[in-house]
Design a protein around this nucleic acid. Structure first.
Lengths: 165, 165
DNA sequence: CAATCTGATTGCACTTTGCAAGCAGTTGCC
DNA sequence: GGCAACTGCTTGCAAAGTGCAATCAGATTG
């Protein structure tokens, strides 16, 4: 891993941390999919990440402060990965990526519904979701609004519609 | 170039188009740096993109509808690259990336000032900038507000400060 | 004590990247 | 006319990154 940065431009530096085909996928699964363990990320991956790539990305994300790794008390070889404040602050970026992708790429309705809801909810919803993530991952007090429940409900509604139609 | 998509998730699909270390750098230079020609993108690149990588990315971005390529009437071998409506709609994403990078990566003040201004300006400023880009790249009527002038002025102000201090 | 689950690592083929050099056609200038 | 500078872009080659299947050792379970 070379540590030489290409430039001090914020967009470039963000790209140097997240600009590959897998890092944001892993963070998305932790953030929206509730995955906390290596096996969950590996086997429930929609895109089919390879085990060595996952191991490398987890290592790199922890090194860059976007994930934290803690031993799981229930199993001495198990590790729990949590979001950090910096990665929780990626919520608006994820929302914008989802919004753009929904407009300009061939998404499937079931997988796009969360992006649609998050876009419609706007910065207010993003802030509420970030508070919820701080409760789940950083041990902050639980907020009143549960955005994850709203997102999951919408997902299951579309799931029912598509399997019914 | 393989055309098999990994999944229909909007975040994943955005990543499949833009998820590499150079595509967004090229778009950033066209969007904020006013670069329109191959040579401008190559030699004025802050990060030092290689010529073959630039050629490949321009080809790919045109194929994906994020840039359009038109022959330059002033020179038979020259080509002018323009943003398209989809890439103009990346402005909010760029703004979020800049905002996140400014907070969580070691940016330099001079290169971060535009991101700071764009974050402070919010969605209203982004919309004004998008209108301006539509005028420059798509031939739409010129809007009253010139965000590019505001960004450039701020850049030069910081430039003067740093060279003075 | 064997089967299973844990987070990985290894080997190998393939692709992408970075760097330097080179290419053919176009233009400007004397 | 002729030559240097400029145009977008290609080529060759070494290094790094990626994808896939198999495998690993330790922990737990039955």
């Amino acid at each position: 891993m070379s540590n030489t940065l290409r430039s001090g431009c914020p967009i470039n530096l963000t790209l140097e941390v997240l600009g590959d085909r897998w890092s944001l996928i892993v963070l998305r699964d932790v953030m929206f999919g509730g995955r906390r363990h290596y096996r969950e990320l590996l086997s429930q991956s929609e895109e089919g990440i390879a085990s060595n790539v996952l191991a490398d990305r987890l290592k790199r994300l922890v090194a860059n402060g976007l994930l934290s790794r803690v031993d799981d008390p229930s199993h001495k070889q198990k590790a729990v990965y949590s979001l950090t404040e910096p990665s929780i602050q990626l919520v608006p970026l994820m929302a914008q990526m989802g919004a753009w992708g929904r407009r300009h790429t061939p998404t499937t309705p079931l997988l796009a519904i969360r992006a649609e809801l998050l876009e419609a909810g706007g910065p207010e919803m993003w802030a509420a979701f970030m508070d919820e993530l701080r409760a789940i991952h950083l041990g902050a007090p639980s907020p009143a609004r549960r955005v994850s429940v709203e997102l999951q409900a919408a997902y299951e509604r579309v799931l029912a519609e598509t399997s019914a139609g």
